[in-house]
Each structure stands twice: as C-alpha cells, then as structure tokens.
C-alpha cells in the first residue's frame, strides 16, 4: 500500500519472522497494511482470512499474537521498534468475554 506521507520508516517490527518497516506512532495494523499484508488470521469455522475491519478496536477481527501475547488487536497496538507479531489470534478462549445475554 502507498503511504499518505512518504517518510523514512526508522522502526522495524517482525511479522512471522519477516522484517516490516514502521514509522513511529503507527499501529501494527497500519504497518502491516503498508507492507501489503491485509489478513493475518483465519476464522475457526470456514478458514476465511481476516484483517482490519472496524479499525478502531470494536470488531476484534484483526486479532493476532504480539510479543507472545495472544488475541491482540492490530488496530490498537503500537508498532514500536522490535515488536514481534505472529499471524493467528493465538490461544482461543483465554480472553473469552462471551455471554448469552
């Protein structure tokens, strides 16, 4: 993806071990988007790709594992230098706030 404000990207994060450039203040979701990566987990039932949707922390579509912590929202997490990201949301159920009502 192109950037709105092309500038050097002094930070580096990793995505499944691959280095991805990031600018200070960007989110993980933004850095991945600029690197042309649009999905980073698959749904449980149908194995469909998921990435950013609401972009503001509401929908939980963009979950991935960040610095070993599962189920993190890429749209909120800052892409600080050295941040390590793994595709897949990680362990299911750990943070299940599910309710029947």
């Amino acid at each position: 993806m192109p950037t709105a404000e092309p500038e050097p990207a002094p930070n580096t994060i990793t995505f499944d071990g691959e280095p991805i450039p990031a600018r200070p203040g960007q989110t993980v979701g933004a850095a991945l988007t600029e690197a042309g990566i649009r999905s980073w987990r698959e749904t449980r039932k149908n194995g469909r790709p998921r990435g950013l949707f609401c972009g503001i922390g509401v929908c939980y579509d963009c979950l991935l594992t960040i610095n070993g912590q599962s189920n993190q929202r890429a749209c909120l997490a800052p892409a600080e230098d050295g941040t390590s990201c793994e595709s897949g949301s990680g362990e299911e159920g750990l943070r299940d706030g599910g309710t029947d009502e």
Partner: peptide, 16 residues
C-alpha cells in the same frame, strides 16, 4: 473496512 477505520488509519497512522 468500516469507513471510520479507513479514516482512523489515515488520521492516526497516515496510512492508506
């Protein structure tokens, strides 16, 4: 994407 998410990427991260 949600329109607000597209705008959040632009306003917050300067990302298209």
């Amino acid at each position: 994407m949600a329109a607000g998410g597209v705008q959040a990427l632009l306003k917050g991260s300067r990302t298209l």
